[in-house]
Computed example of a mutant assay.
Amino acid sequence: MKILVIRRDNIGDLVLTTPLFRALRQRFPEARIDAFVNSYNAPVLAGHPDVDQVHEYTKGKHRKGFSPGWLERLGQMWRLRKEHYDHVVIATPGVHPRQIRFARFLNPAHITAFVPPGWKMFGVDQPVEYLGKDRHHLLMTYRILLPFGIEGDPPAPRIAFTPPAHSPGEAPVIAIHVSARKPSSRWPEERYAELMRALHERHGARFRLFWAPGAENDARHPGDDGRAARILASAAGLPVEAVATNELEGLIAGIAACDAIVCSDGGAMHLAAAMGKPVVCFFGESEAHLWHPWDVPHRLLQPESHDVADVTVDEALAAFDALRQEANAA
């Protein structure tokens, strides 16, 4: 049996799809299980024990130079068609006619996809009713496996990584990720240095600083190079290592070397959770019931205003202290 799972969106979405690969492998241990993802999030599946091959494509906004992307894409589609997959699984929650058309072109024996309740969609012979945003995104995604007879509690998200090597009693290394796509989830930059100073005084903590790379005025790919530089300047005298991560592989390796993370809602949060790192996270105008860290100790800070500027340093410090006590008691 040959199965292709399609998941072409963001980092966190793909992390929360990894339980599908584990469940499929447990159900069909001899199957070939492949993934079709974009080049930006593909490193999430690097070395994944339940995925045989990762096929990736480059979105237009991530394409470099003047290469004819449509020609490359067409060639890739024909190569995938020649794989003669038995099953193509469109794992993205919601109704996605364009992805269904893509799956039909691949000409598999079966297509599994979400459809509106009561609907039939051409080519989808294994439909799963899309019930809306009624549960965590991981659980919404996991329902796509119902036609395979797979249900119940999902496995935890899983990515391949190398855990940190620490001596007993050594001070913790805390990842501090300071970027967020939504303005309401961007904690004021001056508070990061205050928090790090308090954590260092209280726990002897050391820090690794992460951010979205790029200039703040880059119209296509705005980053937080300036923000990170200002935070580093404010944290002078503290044991802070700046970790520039121009590729996702670097972010994964960088977080893997830490013991916990303080961050906003986003891909870095889900990566850390999939590695079992305790998480303190800031949520602004995000739906916490859909996107909270899954199956890992965490403290989620979301004020009534849904603007993380209203979260104080003392609240963040108290959240980390509570999380540390929980981890020590486990």
Results as ranks from 00 to 15, higher is better:
S39M: 01
D34S: 11
Q26L: 05
S305E: 05
K2R: 15
Q76D: 12
K82V: 00
L195P: 02
L74P: 00
V89P: 10
V115E: 15
L248W: 09
H87F: 14
N328D: 08
A268H: 06
A193F: 03
H270S: 03
R27W: 06
A113K: 11
P183H: 06
H306R: 14
A109F: 09
M1V: 07
I231N: 07
A256T: 05
H270W: 09
F66M: 11
R135C: 11
E247C: 02
H177Q: 15
F102R: 11
N38P: 12
E201L: 01
L106K: 10
F21G: 00
E151F: 12
A46N: 13
E285Q: 14
A160I: 00
L71C: 02
Y40P: 05
H203S: 06
I174V: 11
A273H: 10
N328T: 07
P297V: 01
M275F: 08
I252G: 01
L71P: 02
R101I: 13
C281F: 00
V173W: 12
D259I: 00
A113L: 06
P188E: 14
M77K: 03
F114V: 15
T162I: 08
L139N: 13
R7W: 15
A322K: 09
E83K: 10
N328V: 05
L4K: 07
Q53W: 00
T112D: 13
G223P: 06
L146Q: 14
T17M: 09
K120E: 15
W78S: 07
P188C: 07
R181P: 02
V240L: 05
F28C: 08
H96N: 14
L4P: 10
R135P: 09
A260V: 00
D153Y: 08
P97R: 13
P155L: 04
N328M: 05
N217L: 01
I252Y: 01
P116F: 02
L323N: 09
E285D: 13
P117W: 04
D225W: 05
E241A: 10
V311W: 03
L131P: 12
E190L: 02
F207D: 02
W78V: 14
E83N: 07
L145N: 08
A229Q: 12
H84M: 07
A219E: 13
